[in-house]
Amino acid sequence: MLDKFGIARRIAKEVKNGYYVNLGIGIPTLVANFVRTDIEVEFQSENGILGMGPFPFEGQEDADVINAGKQTITALPGASYFDSATSFSMIRGQHVDLTILGAMEVSEQGDIANWKIPGLMVKGMGGAMDLVASADNIIVAMMHTNKDGQSKLLKRCTLPLTGVACVKKIVTNLAVMEITNKGFRLLERAPGVSVEEIKAATEGNLVVNGPIPEMS
C-alpha cells in the first residue's frame, strides 16, 4: 500500500518531457518533488505563475509570490506572471498538457466530485471546474477509500459534481486505474496489494484483464 508520497511518486512518472503541468492542492502538490530532473517541465499555478519553483528558504518568502494553495513559492528562470483571465486561457485553451488533482469521489464514467458536501462542507470549486472541463489529460490522486472505509470509486458520484466524464486516470494508495467505457480498468497494483483487495475497495465496476503487475 502507498502513502501520499508514494502516490505522488507514481504520478510523477506520468509527467513527460516538455509538459506544462497544473498541480492541485494536497497530494498533487507533492508530485513536483518526484519529477525526473533530466526532463524539461514547467508547473503552472492558476493564480498566475508559469515556471513555479520550490518553496523559498526561510527569510526569503515574498507575500506577492504564492501558489493556488496560498503557499509562498519561488519562480524559476524562465517563469512568468499573468492575470487570472490569461491563466484560464492557458487552461481552457488546452495549452496545459497535464492536470493532476484530488477528489472526494470518482465515478466509473470518469465523473469527479471534489468541491462540496451539502450541508456540511462548502469550500468552493476554485479552478477545478475549469480544469476538468477543458483538460484532455486529467489524473486524480486520492485515497481509495474515505476515513470510514467507504469506496471513493463509485458507479455514480453521490456528491455534487465538479465535472462529467473527464477523468482519464486514477492513482490511489492501492492501484493505478484508467477510465474505460466498461468502468475502472485496473493497470497496476500497489506493492503488496492483491487484486481482490482492490476489488473489495472499489464500488464501481473494476475491469481486470489478465495478470496485473505490481507498480515498480
Partner: peptide
Amino acid sequence: VELIPQGTLAERC
C-alpha cells in the same frame, strides 16, 4: 453565496 468556477469569474470580469 454564489460559488462560480475561478476561470469563469475571471472571464466574467
